[in-house]
């Protein structure tokens, strides 16, 4: 059992998140995908920290990521609500009033 398994887990989760972000058109799901990606990064941070235990910077970074992710979710959901009020939908493809 080494770090490889953790890194693999982290990068696969990151990839799943990225796939979700790139393929789904529902803003809420896209936001959740981003949360998955951020969590995947946290796994990597914490795993690395475990193998370099002279300090806790990896874990501390993960704390910050969690805090930022929460703040990001707040702003993101606010924008989603504003979008929903105007468009009555949460599908990003509906965003076509631009580019013409």
């Amino acid at each position: 059992m080494g770090i490889g398994e953790y890194l693999a887990l982290g990068s696969i989760l990151f990839g799943i998140g990225a796939t979700g972000f790139l393929t789904r058109r529902n803003v809420l799901i896209q936001l959740m995908s981003i949360e998955i990606m951020l969590n995947a990064v946290n796994v990597v941070f914490v795993a690395f920290n475990r193998f370099m235990p002279s300090n806790h910077m990896g874990q501390v970074f993960a704390f910050f990521v969690i805090a930022v992710a929460a703040a990001e979710a707040a702003v993101g959901l606010a924008i989603v609500i504003a979008f929903f009020r105007l468009k009555k939908t949460v599908v990003t493809d509906a965003g076509d009033s631009l580019r013409n």
Binding site: F21, L38, A40, V41, V44, L86, T92, G95
Partner: peptide, 25 residues
């Protein structure tokens, strides 16, 4: 338009932030 642009910006920006973060990790 404003909200839509912001949403696009937010989504892609967060995605890029995740990439950056992974790089940092």
């Amino acid at each position: 338009r404003s909200v839509e642009g912001a949403m696009k910006y937010f989504l892609l920006g967060s995605f890029a932030a995740a990439l950056l973060l992974f790089g940092m990790a």
